[in-house]
Computed example of a mutant assay.
Amino acid sequence: MANSPSSKKRALQAERRADVNKARRSRMRTFIRKVEEAIATGNVDAASSALRTAQPEIMKNVSKGIVHKNTASRKISRLAGRVKALSA
Rank of each mutant, 00 (worst) to 15 (best):
62 V>Q: 13
84 K>G: 13
69 K>I: 03
65 G>N: 08
51 L>K: 01
24 R>V: 01
2 A>R: 07
74 R>L: 06
53 T>R: 03
20 V>M: 14
66 I>S: 11
76 I>G: 05
72 A>V: 07
69 K>D: 11
79 L>Y: 04
84 K>Y: 12
47 A>N: 11
48 S>C: 15
14 A>R: 11
42 G>D: 12
49 S>K: 00
67 V>P: 10
30 T>L: 08
47 A>E: 15
61 N>D: 09
21 N>Y: 14
70 N>V: 05
79 L>H: 15
5 P>E: 03
1 M>V: 12
7 S>F: 12
17 R>Y: 12
39 I>Y: 13
3 N>P: 10
4 S>D: 03
20 V>C: 00
81 G>F: 07
39 I>C: 03
64 K>C: 06
66 I>H: 13
73 S>K: 05
63 S>G: 02
20 V>W: 13
37 E>Y: 10
84 K>R: 12
59 M>E: 04
69 K>P: 09
52 R>W: 14
44 V>L: 08
41 T>R: 04
29 R>V: 09
5 P>Q: 01
5 P>K: 00
65 G>V: 00
33 R>M: 14
58 I>L: 13
50 A>E: 07
68 H>P: 11
74 R>I: 08
78 R>M: 12
77 S>A: 05
32 I>E: 04
73 S>R: 07
80 A>F: 03
41 T>Q: 03
74 R>F: 09
69 K>F: 05
82 R>Y: 10
71 T>G: 14
20 V>Y: 15
56 P>V: 03
44 V>P: 12
31 F>H: 04
80 A>Q: 00
40 A>S: 05
41 T>N: 13
44 V>F: 14
21 N>F: 09
18 A>K: 06
85 A>S: 15
57 E>H: 07
61 N>H: 09
61 N>Q: 00
77 S>G: 12
9 K>I: 00
24 R>E: 10
66 I>V: 00
45 D>E: 01
65 G>K: 04
79 L>W: 09
72 A>C: 02
46 A>H: 06
1 M>S: 00
30 T>D: 03
60 K>L: 06
27 R>E: 07
82 R>D: 14
54 A>H: 11
68 H>F: 11
67 V>H: 12
11 A>M: 14
81 G>V: 09
29 R>L: 01
5 P>R: 00
20 V>F: 15
27 R>Q: 10
65 G>A: 04
61 N>A: 07
15 E>S: 14
22 K>I: 00
16 R>W: 09
33 R>Y: 08
33 R>T: 00
61 N>I: 06
65 G>R: 06
40 A>Y: 10
60 K>A: 03
22 K>S: 00
9 K>L: 05
12 L>T: 01
16 R>K: 04
3 N>Y: 15
12 L>Y: 08
19 D>L: 06
78 R>I: 08
79 L>I: 14
75 K>G: 05
81 G>T: 13
36 E>Y: 09
82 R>V: 13
82 R>I: 14
40 A>G: 02
9 K>S: 01
59 M>F: 08
68 H>W: 11
7 S>K: 15
81 G>W: 12
73 S>C: 01
58 I>A: 15
25 R>L: 06
49 S>R: 02
36 E>P: 09
9 K>F: 04
44 V>W: 10
35 V>T: 04
62 V>E: 09
23 A>R: 14
30 T>Y: 12
55 Q>W: 01
25 R>M: 11
81 G>I: 13
69 K>G: 05
33 R>P: 00
32 I>C: 15
6 S>I: 02
65 G>F: 10
69 K>M: 11
